[in-house]
């Protein structure tokens, strides 16, 4: 049941700022990116129409696939690790007491701190000469890994730092989900002889599955959009081995001055995000509810 507006123009006036700004800064830019993706333009000389050349180049040079695979590898590691770790921590920390509260806060704090701070911090910790990690590794008599200088390792290092930063988010959402697991049911199951694993497998996990799907898809979309950590820690290197999607777009604009190619990459990136969001909305329908009936 809705109300009639007192004046017919009222609802339009109320929505106007919101819709105009969303239009100008979300929808128009999409159109502009799509339009510019058919031009070659360096910001200085006039733009030239080139048809599908930008897309063709991205495909035939292998750029698109390389960047896409890298982004996917990074995201898969980030999502699976932060989900597993977040769930484990939520299960272990779902109880009263100062110590548990402290560990919860410590893990979650990294989610609140900025990406720049986290990037710089780990850059220093992982410094190959003077960094703490290399020192400790050497002290134990092992050869230190070149975390940021080895093209085969760097992407996973970035993923690891990302996991450090966002596991707190997964943990917090899982903890909220665990509130819906009725304690009485767990106790009854324990009395009936169900061990911890059985209780998790039969009672807790089925109730948490929608939460897990939600956290998983949300972190997947967010990790596809990762940029800050790449910019701060590796600038996409060495030899472009950590150039993931958004960094590749940035590089085309601000390093190569190729607006057309950047726009084409943006369009592809947007379509990928739409696909991922579709996936998320399928899960969203069975999203975690405030009350779960059992």
């Amino acid at each position: 049941m809705s109300l009639r507006p007192t004046k017919a123009f009222h609802p339009y006036a109320m929505l106007a700022p919101t819709l105009v700004l969303l239009g100008l800064f979300s929808i128009v830019p999409l159109g502009v990116a799509f339009h510019r993706s058919f031009f070659a333009w360096d910001l200085l000389t006039p733009a030239e129409p080139v048809g599908f050349d930008n897309y063709r180049f991205l495909w035939s040079s292998g750029e698109l696939l390389e960047v896409g695979w890298r982004t996917l590898a990074y995201s898969v590691v980030v999502v699976s690790a932060s989900l597993t770790l977040g769930l484990a921590l939520a299960l272990a920390l779902n109880r009263e007491g100062r110590f548990y509260a402290f560990v919860r806060s410590a893990v979650f704090s990294a989610y609140v701190v900025s990406w720049v701070a986290v990037g710089l911090l780990w850059l220093w910790l992982l410094d190959p000469q003077a960094g703490l990690v290399a020192r400790v590794t050497r002290g134990l008599g092992w050869t230190p890994v070149d975390w940021l200088g080895n093209p085969k390792v760097v992407l996973f290092t970035l993923a690891g730092v990302t996991v450090w930063k966002i596991t707190g988010y997964a943990m917090v959402i899982f903890l909220a989900g665990l509130k819906d697991v009725p304690r009485s049911v767990l106790e009854a199951a324990a009395l009936d002889g169900a061990g911890p694993w059985q209780r998790f497998h039969r009672i807790v996990w089925p109730l948490l599955r929608p939460t897990a799907a939600f956290v998983g898809t949300t972190s997947l979309i967010l990790s596809f959009q990762a940029f800050d950590i790449v910019r701060v820690m590796t600038q996409g290197g060495p030899v472009r081995s950590s150039t993931i999607f958004v960094y590749a777009i940035y590089e085309q604009v601000f390093v190569n001055l190729r607006i057309g190619r950047a726009s084409a990459l943006t369009v592809v990136f947007f379509l990928l995000l739409v696909g991922l969001t579709g996936l998320q909305w399928r899960w969203w329908r069975n999203r975690p509810r405030a009350k779960t009936t059992l």
Binding site: T18, L19, L22, G23, F25, S26, I27, V28, P29, L30, V32, A33, R36, L43, Q225, F227, V246, I249, V253, I259, A262, S263, T266, F269, F270, L273, V274, T277
Partner: peptide
């Protein structure tokens, strides 16, 4: 329209917005 804009993060709009504001 509001819901559709949920799918358009700044990482998609920064190139065109930069071109528009310049």
């Amino acid at each position: 329209m509001v819901m559709a804009c949920l799918m358009i993060p700044p990482q998609v709009t920064f190139v065109p917005v930069f071109m528009m504001l310049g």
